[in-house]
Design a protein around this nucleic acid. Sequence first.
DNA 1: TGACAATAGTTGCCTAGGCATGTATAGTCC
DNA 2: GGACTATACATGCCTAGGCAACTATTGTCA
Lengths: 154, 154
Amino acid sequence: MTALRTADVALIDTTSVPSKHGIIRLINRVRVELIDALDLELSKFDISAPQLIVLASVANKEADSASTLCKSISYDPGAMTRMIDRLEQKGLIRRTPNPDDRRATNLELTTAGRALYPQLLAAKETVQAQFLRGFSQDDVRVLEGLLNRMLENR
Amino acid sequence: MTALRTADVALIDTTSVPSKHGIIRLINRVRVELIDALDLELSKFDISAPQLIVLASVANKEADSASTLCKSISYDPGAMTRMIDRLEQKGLIRRTPNPDDRRATNLELTTAGRALYPQLLAAKETVQAQFLRGFSQDDVRVLEGLLNRMLENR
DNA sequence: TGACAATAGTTGCCTAGGCATGTATAGTCC
DNA sequence: GGACTATACATGCCTAGGCAACTATTGTCA
């Protein structure tokens, strides 16, 4: 192994500066800021970020039961029961018995839930637009591509 | 507004697939997977991911007091007090009075903390390497650049 | 079919962060 | 220097997720 020349050192410095604390802390940081901003935006509806994810999953019919929901977003079943309890108390979601499986309960938005959902979605779009200000379509695609590659590496 | 041609629709489909749930959920997802993997890797040391961040900040002398620490990682002061309590109970960190400011307490790693830290760092590197498998140096730089731009947009 | 395993959902217990409040100390400004 | 404000940290209370244990139901398979 040969000694490093000055130019090499400069190169190494440039590349190591952005990852001073590593990608984990960076992603954590971005996530904290995103969730804080989203919670702020959603607070006028008395809805939290996790609640929005659940509502969105039900609204888009990606998940019709609690267990599907848990798997799709890596959420604890016990926490999910209580989360649905809260959303049901708010009158946004409804549990209905599943005729094909008496262990399961189907989930669906109530009229109030369907009415509120577009506003929540708009709030989310606002936050996303704020953080992606100045991003080209390509930038967003690249970012999503890299993040998805991280997930696939799991 | 003119009607979309088939080619346009195809383009739109391609670009919208990755962001089916938006960047917020994607980042959340990556963060969950990262933290899960890190916690698993750290579990043999009985250390959690948040605790590692605190230890690293103290080890790298980025933060010498609790308040600096709170600011640098957006953490609640009350939670930080208890976090430091736990790390102190584990014998990894020490509170020492600050001679210049009697409100503050300085933080430093104990001998045990300094001995353990490199192993924790290696665990973190392992997880990072796992998720960044197949990434070129450029890929990492681009990813960090885009994430930093999101932070700057805040 | 009957035993056994797997799944859906719930509940209790524990842990940990967020917020509000309190206390001590330091800084500011007239 | 004295009143006022800001800061550092700690504590109590509340909320919410993770995990383990439990019940009811369904699937599997000999």
